[in-house]
Design a binder for these strands. Structure first.
Lengths: 115, 115
DNA sequence: CAGGATCCGTACCGATACTG
DNA sequence: CAGTATCGGTACGGATCCTG
C-alpha cells in the first residue's frame, strides 16, 4: 500500500488514483458516457454538453485521447470532419462508470433519508 | 442523462460525479484505505501518509467527515485524543475502491505492454 | 496532540477573439 | 467545422508559524 507506483512521470500511491486521474476531469465522465452509446463528431458532442466551452471540450477530448481511452479520427476533407469514439481501453471502463453511477445514486438516496 | 441532479447546493450531470467529488481529493483514497483496515488517531495517519501536510490531512479528514464517510470521535481529555474510523456509508465504498484499484492496475499493465 | 491561521504559487477553468 | 490563442479569475494545495 505505501510503496509508490511510477507511471508516466507521475507518482501514485495506489492504482485507483490512476483511474481517478483519467476520469476526474470536469467533462470526462459525460464525454465517455456519450461515446459509450455512439460515435460523435465534435459539434455533436458540443450540442449534447452545452455547459462545456469549446476550449474545455477540446482539452478534455485530448486528455482522453492521450490516455488511450478514446480515438480521434480525422477525415482529410474540407470542411474538417473529426469523429470520436471509445477505444478498447475506454470500453473496458464502461462497467466501472456504471458502478460509480449506482453508488452515487445510492449515496444520494441515503443522504436524503438522513436529512 | 442530460437532466441535472441537485445535491447539497451543487449541480451534477450524473450521479457518478458525486462519488468522484467524494473521493477525488488528493489524499482521500489513501485515508479511506487506511481507515478501512483500522481506526487511527490523527498522528498515526500522519505517520502513514508522510506526503500530506498537517493542514491538508486535516482538510481532507473534515471533507470526508462532512460527506459522512468517516467518523471523527473526540475524547475530552488532555492532551487531546481524536480517533477516525469509517462510517457505515464509508464502509459501503470499500468494494468500489477495490474495483478502482483493480481497473487501475489493469490499465497500467496494458499501457506498459503497448509501449 | 491535534489542530488553526496565514501567505502564496500554480493549475484549473471560463470568456472571448481568431483561423486553416 | 473543429479547432487555437490569449487573458484573467478562482480554488486547490504547499510551506510556515501559532495555539488550547
Amino acid at each position: 500500500m505505501s510503496h509508490l507506483i511510477e507511471f508516466r512521470n507521475q507518482q501514485y500511491r495506489c492504482t485507483s488514483e490512476i483511474i481517478l486521474d483519467l476520469i476526474s476531469g470536469k467533462w470526462k465522465i459525460l464525454i465517455l458516457s456519450f461515446l459509450a452509446e455512439h460515435t460523435f463528431r465534435f459539434n455533436e458532442l458540443q450540442k449534447r454538453i452545452p455547459g462545456a466551452t469549446q476550449k474545455m471540450l477540446t482539452m478534455q477530448l485530448r486528455d482522453l485521447e492521450n490516455d488511450g481511452l478514446i480515438v480521434r479520427k480525422v477525415y482529410p476533407v474540407v470542411p474538417p470532419k473529426v469523429e470520436y469514439y471509445l477505444s478498447d481501453q475506454g470500453q473496458r471502463l464502461a462497467p466501472m462508470l456504471q458502478l460509480l453511477c449506482e453508488y452515487g445514486a445510492d449515496y444520494v438516496d441515503r443522504f436524503r433519508l438522513d436529512q
